[in-house]
């Protein structure tokens, strides 16, 4: 009997590890307000640049130490997960909704609409991606939400192309012809008949889109064009602690490791999903 993709995913060690890791991060992000943490933006006077508790001079009051302003690093890292995962999620949802709809309609209707959408994709792909995001943020003004729009715009071409390609592959198949014979309208055909059969590549793309989005948001934060102080965003935290790199290296290690772990997990999950949907390799 053929195994379901889910069963195959559960046999993939990498995918299981990534699912566990992501669950931990999601739980931490959701439960952050319930955890016994110092408020992430609170400045503790006289407690600047405290070492982590496993170093001499550290205390359990700030388990991972404090930053240059005297804010609790552990708390900022955990609240940072809310930002990275939350905005990563919004980025993927927006990309799927906008990119998926454009790709679906372009592939289904064809004609001038298809050509227009493809031309838009060409133009977006001809623009240097991070640079495009930077210019968009420069136009809109630096903020977390504007960074989200910029990163979504950059992600669109991938989603449009993937959806369009799989719609083209499905459109002429017999079950679609049959549903037309039964009188299904364009909307019903697109969303009820064709779309469910195009989900596999879209889900893989969504998982990879998560990691791209989180990386790009963090990069914008690092350049000072994303989250603004005192928001505990990982990329922005790295930029803030860069100046203290030589004396307070713990401030630089952890935010980067957090970004790496989340991005790595989504890439692993994406690889696992691809293998699960397409088990030929």
């Amino acid at each position: 009997m053929k195994k379901s993709p889910w069963a195959r995913l559960c046999e993939n060690r990498g995918a299981v590890v990534s699912l566990v890791l992501l669950s931990v991060w999601v739980l931490l992000a959701i439960l952050a307000p319930l955890l016994p943490l110092n408020p992430p933006a609170q400045i503790f006077d006289g407690e600047q640049l405290k070492l982590p508790m496993w170093n001499e001079g550290g205390s359990s009051r700030f388990p991972m130490g404090t930053d240059d302003l005297g804010r609790d690093l552990l708390s900022r890292l955990i609240y940072g997960a809310q930002i990275s995962l939350g905005f990563g999620f919004l980025n993927v949802v927006a990309s799927v909704l906008i990119g998926g709809t454009l790709g679906l309609t372009a592939g289904y209707f064809g004609g001038w609409w298809d050509r227009l959408v493809l031309r838009m994709v060409d133009i977006l792909m001809a623009l240097p991606s991070l640079l495009l995001a930077i210019v968009v943020v420069a136009v809109l003004g630096p903020s977390l939400w504007n960074a989200l729009w910029a990163v979504t715009l950059v992600a669109l071409p991938g989603f449009i192309r993937i959806t369009r390609a799989s719609v083209l592959a499905e459109r002429e198949k017999e079950y679609v012809q049959a549903s037309r014979a039964f009188g299904a309208g364009a909307l019903r055909q697109m969303f009820k008949t064709i779309l469910p059969n195009c989900m596999a590549p879209l889900i893989v793309q969504a998982s990879l889109g998560f990691s791209d989005g989180i990386l790009n948001m963090a990069a914008l934060g690092f350049l000072g064009l994303g989250a603004q102080p005192p928001t505990p965003e990982w990329g922005a935290m790295l930029a803030d602690s860069k100046a203290y790199m030589e004396t307070a290296s713990w401030l630089v290690y952890w935010p980067g490791l957090c970004i790496l772990s989340v991005v790595l997990a989504f890439n692993l999950l994406g690889d696992g999903l691809r293998d699960a949907f397409d088990p030929k390799l």
Partner: peptide, 17 residues
């Protein structure tokens, strides 16, 4: 895979360090 997932601005900081 780790290289592929690397936030390179952080990677650069680590190498500088």
């Amino acid at each position: 895979l780790v290289g592929y997932s690397m936030p390179i601005f952080w990677w650069g900081l680590m190498l500088i360090l």
